[in-house]
Simulated scan of single mutants.
Amino acid sequence: MKEPTLKKVAYGAAMAIAIILVHFINARMYTMPPIFAIFLAIFFTYLGISVIKKYDKFDQKISRTKYNLLNALVVFVLFIAYYTIAQ
């Protein structure tokens, strides 16, 4: 595996934010067909990754422990937000 960078964690966070946003729209504002929700999540993820690629600040290397902890935090927040929105 290549050296972990903050950019890889930010990509995961962008995907998590896109999923949370689409789920919120789907659950609270407008019920979408599943295929449309998937395409919207892909679009929001693409936008997030495009913004992340523009900044060189995310290219810094981090330790493998910090990388794993940040990824676990992103996944934990994703689960909490997903089930909180559903209720």
Rank of each mutant, 00 (worst) to 15 (best):
F58T: 01
A37K: 05
K61P: 05
R64A: 10
K7W: 02
T31P: 03
I49E: 04
Y67A: 05
Q60E: 15
F36H: 07
N26H: 13
L78F: 14
V51N: 06
L70H: 05
A41L: 06
F36Y: 12
Y67G: 01
L69G: 09
F44V: 09
G48K: 01
I52Q: 00
P34D: 08
S50G: 15
T45N: 09
K7V: 01
V51T: 13
M15S: 13
N71A: 09
S50I: 13
G48A: 06
I38H: 11
V22S: 01
F58E: 01
L73M: 09
V22A: 03
I19N: 08
P33T: 12
G48P: 04
I17S: 08
I35Y: 14
I35G: 06
I42D: 05
A16T: 09
L78G: 09
L69D: 09
A13H: 04
E3N: 15
K8D: 01
G12S: 12
I25S: 01
M29P: 04
R28S: 14
A41N: 05
Y55K: 07
L70W: 06
I25H: 00
F36C: 04
I52E: 00
A10Y: 00
V22N: 01
V74D: 00
A16G: 11
I17T: 11
G48N: 04
T5W: 01
G12Q: 13
V51I: 15
M29F: 14
S50E: 14
V9P: 00
K2C: 08
T45V: 10
E3R: 15
Y55W: 11
Y30G: 12
V74S: 02
T45L: 06
F76A: 15
I52L: 02
Y46H: 13
V51F: 13
L47C: 10
V51K: 08
K2M: 13
K53G: 02
N68Q: 13
M32K: 05
